[in-house]
């Protein structure tokens, strides 16, 4: 069959428009849609959710003692921030999420819900996959806009800072601040992140059928167990992180540093860790701010405490 016979990608039977680039490469686009959900977005989410789980882990006394680091969550976020070309990783992730979301929305429009008459488990999962996808998209956008980009969305003014103006570690404190802002925030994060978890683990199950990996119903059942186990583990991480952020007590000096950052920081770029090769700004006393020094030459704890009075730059 020649390419001119391609059907329109808009999904309509009656559409007679000339097949566009997407219509001609429809299968490729749909496979990339599947792949973009599993690899870049999904794998990132696993790392992200596991990192968040440390908020709770580091508060459990006997577990905490197993690790050298007092603030494991801070350590992990600092590591992520230290990754080279972080901006490109972010752009890559956003491209993947944007692509997955755009095709996903178009695909969801074709959904004719019939769960009232056909109440089969997989039909409900199909419906839930679409609902959680939409929730996840809204959640991810609001989450990144408020924490990462530090947009002030009214009552959702919960910017995230890795360090205070004087280098005070703020990762755990600003996460706790965001989730303790109101009961709605914890609820929003719980529903949003659990939607992401469901969407990913159920998507992993359907992807195996789509790609033709699990053929027989028996194989699909076995793979379903694996996906369920993954989903449950991620759900535990999620709930743990929300609990951890709610039980964490923000210390006075952390709150002070956080407020200083929020008061003086309209644009987060000024306070973000400098990119490779970028110069560290010198403070008035000739020292470098702790948040832009490599860890091994970071100022000692006493120096940081002495510099607590340093105003926000």
């Amino acid at each position: 069959m020649s390419q001119t016979d391609s059907k329109c990608c808009c999904g309509s039977k009656s559409c007679s428009s000339e097949p566009c680039f997407m219509a001609k490469n429809y299968f490729l686009f749909r496979r990339l849609h599947s792949l973009s959900g599993i690899i870049p977005v999904g794998v990132f989410c696993i790392v992200h959710l596991f990192t968040n789980f440390q908020i709770m882990i580091q508060q459990i006394p006997f577990v905490k003692d197993l690790f050298n680091e007092a603030d494991i969550f801070q350590h992990e976020v600092d590591f992520i921030h230290s990754l080279p070309a972080l901006l490109f990783i972010e752009i890559g992730l956003w491209s993947a999420i944007g692509f997955h979301a755009l095709l996903g929305i178009a695909y969801t429009m074709q959904w004719k819900n019939n769960t009232t008459h056909y109440q089969y488990t997989n039909n409900k999962r199909y419906a839930l996959q679409r609902i959680t996808g939409i929730i996840a998209l809204i959640f991810i956008f609001v989450h990144v806009a408020t924490l990462r980009w530090r947009w002030n969305l009214g009552f959702l003014n919960t910017p995230f800072y890795a360090h205070g103006p004087d280098g005070t570690p703020l990762v755990t404190a600003s996460t706790a601040y965001a989730l303790q802002a109101s009961w709605f925030m914890s609820f929003f994060y719980l529903i949003g992140a659990l939607s992401v978890v469901y969407h990913w683990s159920n998507g992993l199950w359907t992807a195996a059928i789509t790609w033709g990996v699990t053929i027989t119903p028996a194989a699909q059942k076995r793979w379903n167990m694996v996906c369920t186990a993954l989903g449950v583990a991620l759900a535990i991480f999620t709930v743990g992180a929300v609990i951890g952020a709610n039980t964490y007590q923000i210390k006075p000096h952390e709150m002070k540093a956080l407020q200083a950052m929020m008061a003086g920081a309209e644009h987060y770029e000024e306070h973000a860790m400098p990119m490779d090769g970028e110069e560290c700004p010198m403070l008035k006393d000739g020292k470098m701010p702790a948040d832009c020094c490599p860890t091994d030459i970071a100022p000692a704890k006493e120096e940081v405490e002495a510099a607590t009075t340093q105003p926000a730059h």
Binding site: M1, S6, G11, Y26, F27, Q110, Y118, T206, T210
Partner: peptide
Amino acid sequence: LNVMQQAGGISDCGNAQNCVEV
């Protein structure tokens, strides 16, 4: 399989699996 690759083909299946039930 060329027909299956097109819009409306196999990749539009959403795995609701009602077909096999009914």
